[in-house]
Design a protein around this nucleic acid. Structure first.
Lengths: 112, 112
DNA sequence: CGCGCTGTATTATGGCAGTCAAACAGCATG
DNA sequence: CATGCTGTTTGACTGCCATAATACAGCGCG
């Protein structure tokens, strides 16, 4: 029953990351439970867990087993910083090359 | 036996598209054969064929079975135009939103 | 303590995308 | 017409993604 352009667990990962960065999930607060988010997004709890897992490994969310998962201190800033670096190092060069090939100029689009 | 970040046939598709746009494969000329390109890129002929297939459907390359595939008239211009539209309509908005979320501004990117 | 919430592990199933090997089909040239 | 190039079709195999159904493990509160 799959067939998406982007894997569900990656969409969820982005959803959570965005929430942490923009303050929807402030530091220290409890994140939506695996089952709750699964129900809300119409996904499987296991898939949601997989999305959360990436953040635990990076220490961005702290797990209190039996209680819930909480946004770690400094998570927003750390996350924004790492995503920024990754963007500039990996994605932007390719985007830039592609734009150049198509005859598009960055500053023309950014000033819109 | 797979496991790449970007599928091979998409990389090949981009390679061919770039060649058509920048004049490496001028209009009217014959494109590299399926097997030749496969050998050169270390890929499977069928994977190359899959990459070419997208262009045939769009009429950007014309097939003479048993002879070869040729760049159609006006292919470069048509391709550049469609890729530009697709980029501006689909990719750029997401990129822009992502940049905004990360707090990236024009001056961060144009320092090259 | 027991009930209800939390995350986690196990196992099995289904589907789809990507890749590949081998055989098939069309055209040109000697 | 046979050789050698072209593109094309068929069938199969693999790995990832997602799902489901259980069962287990930790914590808090009445």
């Amino acid at each position: 029953m799959a067939g998406h352009s982007q894997p569900v667990y990656l969409k969820l990962r982005d959803l959570i990351a965005a929430g942490i960065i923009d303050g929807t999930f402030p530091e220290g607060t409890m994140l939506p439970s695996v089952r709750a988010l699964a129900a809300e997004q119409g996904a499987n709890p296991l898939t949601v867990a997989k999305a959360y897992q990436q953040f635990q490994l990076d220490g961005l969310v702290e797990v209190q087993r039996g209680v819930g998962m909480f946004v770690a201190r400094g998570a927003a800033e750390r996350l924004r910083r790492s995503e920024r670096e990754a963007f500039l190092a990996n994605e932007w060069p390719q985007i830039r090359a592609r734009m150049e090939r198509l005859g598009l100029v960055a500053k023309d689009l950014l000033t819109t």
